[in-house]
Nucleic acid binder design. Structure first.
Length: 276
DNA sequence: AAAACCGCCTGTCGGC
DNA sequence: TGCCGACAGGCGGTTT
C-alpha cells in the first residue's frame, strides 16, 4: 500500500531516469485509469513531450510536462510505476499504461486492483482532482510543526487514528505508518484527538517525522505489491514494530499485541504501552 | 461535521 | 481439492 515513503521512493528512483527525454509512445491498456480525459486527448498531449520534473504531494506523483501540463498519478492500493530499460521485457499481467522513451526504455503503470489513477491538467490547476486539491500539510515539511499538529487536534473528538489517516489534515500517512507512529508515541489509536496532552502531541509529532524518514531511508515497505521505480522491493517491512504483528509480543514491553477495527481500518497496537 | 457504509478491483487465505 | 466468503485499504461518493 503505497504511502508517503513509498511514493517518495518511486519519485527519487525515477527522477534520474525519465526527465528531459521525449516520450515517443503512450499506450493505455486500462482506459478507466484516466480520470478526466480521453485516451485520445491524453496521448495527443503527452506523445512527443518531455517531463521536466517529478514532484510529490502526499501520495500523489506529479509529472511536470514541458507543455505546462501536469500528469498526476495516484497508485492507490496496488499501483506500481516501474521503469524497464528494455521494452522487450514481457509486460506484467495487470499493466494499465505504458510510456515509451526514445532510448528504448519504458515507464509502466502496473496495477493488480486497478484503483490507481492518472490525470492530465494544466500545471498547478488541481481543482478537479479533489484529493490533491484538498490535501493537508506535508508531514516532513517545516510547516508541520508541533503547533500545527496541536491545531489539527484541538477540539476534535474524532479518534486520533482517523485523524492521522485524513489526507485533508496530514498528507501521506496510510494505515501502516499511522499505526507505527502511534506505537512509537505510545498513544492508543482510539484516543479522542482532543484528549492528547501536550507531551503526547509532541511525541506524536516527532514519531510521525521519524517513522516517515526512516521508511524513506529503507526505500519503503514491501508487504506484497509495492516496488520502487526500479522494480525492487523496499526494506522497511523488516523494521516494522507493530503493523501486521498480531499474535506477537510487543517489542517494547512484551505484552501480546492486539488489533481491532478503528475508523474502519485494521489497527495494530500494544495494550500494554498504548493505553486507552 | 463527522462517521459509517459502499463501490471500485483482484488475489489470497481460512473454513468447510 | 475446490468453492465461498472475508479481507486487504485508498479515496470518492452517498447516506445517516
Amino acid at each position: 500500500m503505497p504511502e508517503l515513503p513509498e511514493v517518495e521512493t518511486v519519485r527519487r528512483s525515477l527522477v534520474p531516469i525519465i526527465l528531459d527525454k521525449p516520450i515517443e509512445s503512450v499506450d493505455v491498456y486500462y482506459e478507466r485509469i484516466l480520470q478526466h480525459i480521453t485516451v485520445r486527448e491524453f496521448r495527443k498531449q503527452t506523445i512527443g513531450r518531455s517531463i521536466l520534473d517529478l514532484i510529490r504531494r502526499g501520495k500523489y506523483l506529479i509529472f511536470q510536462f514541458e507543455n505546462h501540463l501536469d500528469l498526476v498519478a495516484h497508485l492507490r492500493m496496488t499501483g506500481r510505476l516501474i521503469y524497464y530499460s528494455d521494452a522487450g521485457i514481457a509486460m506484467a499481467k495487470h499493466t494499465s499504461a505504458v510510456f515509451g522513451f526514445g532510448s528504448g526504455g519504458e515507464l509502466r503503470f502496473e496495477d493488480v486492483r486497478k484503483f490507481g489513477t492518472l490525470d492530465l491538467v494544466p500545471s498547478g490547476e488541481y481543482e478537479q482532482i479533489k484529493g490533491l486539491h484538498s490535501l493537508g500539510v506535508e508531514p516532513l515539511s517545516e510547516a508541520f510543526s508541533v503547533e500545527h499538529l496541536q491545531d489539527l487536534i484541538e477540539n476534535r473528538s474524532t479518534k486520533i487514528k482517523g485523524l492521522l489517516l485524513d489526507q485533508t489534515k496530514i498528507a501521506g500517512l496510510g494505515n501502516i505508518y499511522a499505526d507505527e507512529s502511534l506505537f512509537m508515541a505510545k498513544i492508543h489509536p482510539e484516543r479522542p484527538a482532543s484528549s492528547l496532552g501536550r507531551e503526547e502531541v509532541k511525541r506524536l509529532h516527532r514519531a510521525i517525522k521519524e517513522v516517515l524518514q526512516d521508511a524513506i531511508l529503507g526505500q519503503g515497505t514491501t508487504l506484497r505489491d509495492y516496488r520502487t521505480g526500479y522494480g525492487r522491493e523496499g526494506s522497511f517491512q523488516n523494521k516494522l514494530q507493530i503493523y501486521g504483528k498480531k499474535g506477537e509480543k510487543c517489542p517494547r514491553c512484551g505484552v501480546d499485541l492486539e488489533y481491532k477495527k478503528v475508523a474502519g481500518r485494521t489497527s495494530h497496537f500494544c495494550p500494554g504501552c498504548q493505553r486507552e
